[in-house]
């Protein structure tokens, strides 16, 4: 008798991802879709798509989506969640969207203890606009707007969003994960699942930061990109749970 070992998640549409080879958006989409399937909340989920590479998330997720303006996803999610308090509402945002233009929105959503889940993709660069410096770009990292490397005196230092948000009282659960190997993928999925479960039990703002690669704009092969993430990004952005306010 045959048994099915792999199936497309119900929370994903049939549309093939448009992401570049080696980009990890697809992995994270897949994890979110699996979590929503496993929690059985697809019919009550409303996702908020950002501006950035994942702007087309509404083509891939098979549930209701509100596409937000740049950085405002947590505000849009607030509006949706207040109208539909029993729904599962999450934002999916990149580092330009969340850590730069939308810094105020995510800080205040956390401060209000807004009952939403935020998935924050940190790949240390602007992807869709073609490789500009992000707030999370590493020191000395070359981008099209830091062509000589990020200069601390001129462009400051990388913004550690998970560390920062974990100081906010209203934040319930803050974790940083990576999807660079199977073991980390399992941990990422566990964290994302927890961030959704806590929302569904009404416990407050949850954010999972996912370190991610951008081979195209980093100018690397997918394999080189994973290696670069491991040797450069993880030391700057250590993995782990930064806040778990309910962990009695």
């Amino acid at each position: 008798m045959n048994s099915k070992l792999y199936a497309r998640s119900e929370s994903l549409t049939d549309a093939p991802f448009h992401y570049c080879p080696g980009c990890q958006h697809g992995i994270v989409h897949r994890i979110i879709a699996e979590v929503i399937d496993e929690l059985g909340v697809r019919k009550q989920t409303i996702g908020i798509a950002p501006v950035g590479c994942s702007v087309l998330a509404y083509e891939y997720f098979n549930f209701d989506i509100v596409q937000a303006s740049h950085g405002r996803a947590p505000a849009v999610a607030t509006g949706v969640k207040r109208v539909c308090p029993d729904s599962t509402v999450f934002t999916y945002q990149g580092d330009g969207d969340l850590a730069s233009i939308g810094c105020a929105e995510v800080v205040h959503a956390a401060a209000r203890g807004e009952r939403i889940t935020t998935i924050f993709i940190n790949n240390a660069i602007y992807g869709m606009t073609g490789g500009q410096m992000a707030p999370t770009t590493l020191v000395d990292q070359v981008t099209t707007t830091s062509p000589y490397g990020r200069n601390v005196n001129q462009a400051g230092t990388p913004l550690c969003i998970s560390e920062m948000l974990s100081t906010i009282q209203g934040a319930r659960f803050i974790a940083r994960v990576a999807v660079n190997n199977p073991s980390n993928m399992a941990k990422a999925k566990a964290a994302i699942k927890k961030a959704f479960q806590l929302q569904n039990s009404g416990e407050g703002f949850c954010l999972v930061e996912v370190l991610s690669t951008c081979p195209t704009n980093w100018g690397m092969t997918p394999l080189e990109a994973v290696k670069w993430l491991e040797t450069n990004m993880i030391p700057q952005y250590p993995l782990g749970v930064f806040k778990d306010a309910g962990g009695e």
Binding site: I46, I48, V66, A68, S69, R72, A75, V76, A77, T78, G79, V80, K81, R82, V83, C84, A104, E105, V107, H108, R112
Partner: peptide, 26 residues
């Protein structure tokens, strides 16, 4: 009803966008 003092006018209109998108009079 829901009254929310947003962190900025920008956030407020985007909350309106979300609430209207979810079908509410806002």
């Amino acid at each position: 009803g829901v009254f929310l003092q947003a962190e900025s006018e920008i956030a407020a209109i985007n909350m309106v966008y979300g609430a209207a998108g979810a079908g509410a009079r806002v």
